[in-house]
Simulated scan of single mutants.
Amino acid sequence: MAKSPQTTSFQPLDREGLVQRVATLLSKAIVTGQLAPGARLSESVVARELGVSRAPVREAARLLENSGLVTYRANRGFFVRETSTQALNDLYELRMVIETAAAQRVLKHGLTETIDRLSAQIDVLHEVAAQGADMLTQVEADMEFHRLLCAGSGNPKFLHVFEQIAAETEFSIMVIGRLYDNPHKIAETHEPIVNAMRRGDEAATCDALRYHIGVAQKLVTRQFRDLTESSSGN
């Protein structure tokens, strides 16, 4: 009598999940500088190192192209994006638009649970600073505040756009190496936003957000310009 096939508890690998995992690994490598701006993203090398086929690597690269981390050159493949001062200005300008709109929606619909989450994330930012965490951890905690704002607005389109530019924002900060000398400053710059939201003051909230993002915009673009000029002068 033939034995029935042995079964296991293994679940089939989800292709979409695999692609996302590869994209996350590549994104971290780009943001942290393991893959430098202008470097070619070799599908065969990445596939071999990760132990996967080239197909999910190619799909992951397409995702990174959508998020602004890589560019595709015909007949040459994918390359880590080389940014510019103008591109960084455009990026922060877009963030101002979607994040102020998200904040306005939070206030309009009285989404106090979102404000509570934002306040809690400021505590996380202070904890990260107190622990002396590395720059990437600080940047990720910073971006989580803004992600929570967009996610908590009740409009999924805001979050969708934010997710497309979040990695590019992280990349821009990691390229210059820092924002503030005092890591607690990162946490403190978010406090006027939440304070204004607590009061239900829409105008003050939008002003605080524009100021917060605008200061980051000036710091990032100035430091990037200085870094670029220093590199070209060598």
Rank of each mutant, 00 (worst) to 15 (best):
A120F: 00
A167E: 15
E59W: 07
L118D: 07
T32F: 00
P156C: 06
K185H: 15
Q11C: 00
Q86F: 11
R54Q: 07
I98E: 10
T83H: 03
G51A: 05
R117N: 06
L91F: 09
E168M: 12
S44M: 06
G17E: 09
A103C: 06
R147H: 11
V194F: 03
P192K: 13
E168C: 05
G214Y: 03
R62N: 10
V57C: 03
K157W: 15
F171N: 15
S42R: 10
F145R: 01
N66C: 00
Q223D: 14
I115G: 02
S27A: 13
T8C: 00
D226L: 09
D142C: 04
S153C: 07
P12E: 04
G68D: 06
V22T: 04
T8E: 03
V124P: 02
L26T: 06
R95D: 04
N66F: 00
A23F: 06
F78H: 11
P56L: 03
E188G: 15
D116G: 01
M135L: 13
P156H: 08
R95G: 06
A101K: 07
A196H: 10
L107E: 10
I193N: 04
K108I: 10
Q138V: 08
E163R: 12
A216E: 15
V139Q: 04
A151C: 03
G33H: 07
V97S: 09
T24K: 15
H190T: 12
N66Q: 08
I165K: 04
T228F: 10
V139H: 06
T85I: 06
H126E: 09
A151Y: 11
D142R: 13
L25C: 05
E168A: 14
V70Q: 11
S231N: 01
E113I: 08
G200W: 05
T114E: 10
Q121N: 14
A204G: 00
V124T: 15
I122F: 06
L69N: 06
R76I: 04
A208L: 03
G33W: 09
Y92G: 00
V80E: 07
A101C: 01
L25N: 12
I186F: 12
D142T: 07
V46T: 09
R76G: 01
R199F: 13
M135E: 14
M174K: 13
E144T: 11
R147M: 03
H109Y: 15
R222I: 00
P37Y: 09
V46H: 01
F171S: 10
V46N: 01
M135A: 13
L50Y: 02
Q86H: 09
M174C: 09
L25I: 10
D226C: 00
V161E: 13
V19M: 08
V97H: 12
L227P: 00
F78C: 02
Q11V: 10
L94I: 11
V139M: 05
K3H: 12
E65W: 00
L69K: 09
E229N: 13
A130F: 11
L111P: 00
V139R: 11
A187T: 09
F78K: 08
G77I: 07
F171K: 14
H160K: 13
L69D: 05
M143D: 05
S172K: 08
L149N: 02
H146V: 07
L64M: 03
K185Y: 12
H212M: 08
L111N: 03
A203S: 02
A133W: 05
N75Y: 04
I173F: 08
A203R: 14
A55Q: 12
A36Q: 08
I122K: 04
